[in-house]
Design a protein around this nucleic acid. Structure first.
Lengths: 133, 133
DNA sequence: CGGTATCCCGGCCGATACTG
DNA sequence: CAGTATCGGCCGGGATACCG
């Protein structure tokens, strides 16, 4: 019943994101990263082209969007479909796994958006007491 | 009006994380950030002291943990309870809102951990085709 | 349109030292 | 134990220019 150092809550999966060296931590960061989460969220509605995505994810630069899409494609969350037409047309869409991830991400996003007033109120209270120092 | 049919993309909430200037984007980043997500995830099991948390979130520095906790406390997701004993004892625990957030985060974390083999496979395929350039 | 290459700055973050 | 202060490197990420 005792296997060296097992914590009560710990999951027995081979991958544990709380461990520094675990590769799942890297993927979690791609997914939850500043642009990763918004990109996946935007693609949940359906496939989008590069510049559509860029407009949808307000504030992202070409460089970061490109970089983000490569990371997500590499992790198998986004599928890139290029058509060799002229002018070129490239569509990005979620893979089945990407959809599952995006679903959870959107749950989180909607929760944060929906409770933002509470957050703002909490900030005011915090700043009123601690910010006065 | 057409309030019956609604595009899934457009939420009518006052806060939209896809908009550059929206404060919800900042909170989402606190929550999904590298240390924010792990901190909230760790606290889901119950309250923890500073150094317990530090050990649990493998790799976090004192500075970043402190900074992360302040941001989460300010946003009303974590409650800090200090006891004026000697040696000092400080417990951190999730607020009700923090619990809801952590719940979603853990859903995401468990999904990523559980599908990590697929991710790793996808990476190999990607690197084999594109990495050869 | 759909990107890549380059430059470069701010701030994220770790290491270290110090305080109550 | 529970932090804060300071320094410095590294790199995330924006701006710009350029290519197929």
């Amino acid at each position: 019943m005792d296997s060296t150092q097992e914590r009560p809550s710990a999951h027995d999966l081979p991958f544990n994101v709380f461990a520094k060296a675990c590769p799942s931590r890297g993927t979690l960061e791609h997914v939850t990263g500043r642009w990763g989460s918004l990109t996946l969220g935007a693609l949940y509605e359906g496939s989008l082209r590069f510049n559509e995505l860029r407009r949808r994810v307000d504030g992202v630069s070409e460089k970061m969007l490109s970089q983000t899409l490569h990371a997500l494609e590499r992790d198998g969350l986004v599928h890139r479909e290029a058509q060799p037409t002229n002018p070129p047309r490239v569509d990005y869409e979620l893979t089945p796994l990407g959809r599952q991830v995006a679903e959870r991400l959107l749950d989180l996003i909607h929760l944060v958006e929906g409770r933002m007033n509470d957050v703002l109120t909490a900030r005011e209270r915090y700043d009123a007491t601690r910010g006065a120092l």
